[in-house]
Amino acid sequence: MVGIVGYGSYLPRYRIKVEDIAKQWGADPEAIKRGLMLYEKTVPGQDEDTITISVEAARYALQRARINPQEIGAVYIGSESHPYAVKPSATVLIDAVGIGPDVHVASFEFACKAGTEAMYVAYSLVKAGEMKYAMGIGADTSQGAPGDALEYSASAGGAAFIMGNENVVAEILFTHSYTSDTPDFWRREHEFYPRHAGRFTGEPAYFKHIVNAGKALLEKSKMKPSDFKHAVFHMPNGKFPQMAGRQLGFTKEQLEAGWIIPWMGNTYSGSSPTGLTAILDVANPGDLIFMVSFGSGAGSDGFIFKVTDKIKDVQDKAVKLRDMLDNNKIYLDYGQYAKYRGKIILNV
């Protein structure tokens, strides 16, 4: 049995409300909240980035896994906001949490699905017998250009998963990936903000890839949507995952536990992975979880998890996602937000 032996997530404390962003650009906040089903988003502190978020999530994952970090043979971090263009984020992480130096690390990038890429490779290496444990992380401090629709959703957070084959809390039963050249969203070298193709990001990109990966996963597993207790899909806004779920045959109730976007925003590579941690925080032994990520460019990774009776031993060993989401918030106005996100040119 190979699957998740420890998991952890991390969200910054800072938030900005849709009203504060809309006010800056003369937009109607009610229309945006209605259209995106989004009310506020997380904002990284000035001293937070993909590396610090990954370290905190990894520490929580280790608290739950209760393993010797030295036994972890690989660490992969998926993000589209790695602090360095050249220097893998996980080089810092392994020294911070006491992994290695006998360890394989890499930075992954695939828009919003880099986190599930990291999870998939970590899982595959353990399944192949190459190592006892491997860690896959999805984390981002995502960028949205001032005034762009993405500015309302691009947020910060991440989740870490330790894969192994002893004391598994959620077994991975099936996986499936679906990928094509679909230019819905990109960021060129040296550009600060990504570009996107507006409504083209919906039907031919997000929905096509999630639905096809989801259908293939159901066919491969010979399962039906009603078999699952929970489902989570990539959450670029509140509406898309609900629509994708409906197209595949899932109900709103099945999405509820992992549907954290309205108060978190889109954490990009951390989106569906943080949703998965919110589900694992409340899951019961025997629950089946259906998960499909989406990364622009474009592709989707699908997973089917079966929760084991070990889950109850680890849920309270570290802070839960909903606790970070609902408590200890510090709200910023747009001026503070612009400063925190480096949107102001300084004369230094």
């Binding site: 910054p12 404390r13 800072y14 502190g45 001293d47 937070e48 980035d49 590396i51 610090t52 370290v55 905190e56 520490r59 911070a96 510090i330």
Partner: peptide, 24 residues
């Protein structure tokens, strides 16, 4: 050490703190 993510009005001598990983 720096004390991060804090409203200065909340700071009190004797308060419990935890060290976290941040960019310095």
């Amino acid at each position: 050490t720096q004390i991060a993510d804090v409203d200065f009005d909340q700071l009190k001598i004797g308060q419990k703190v935890k060290l976290v990983f941040r960019k310095i």
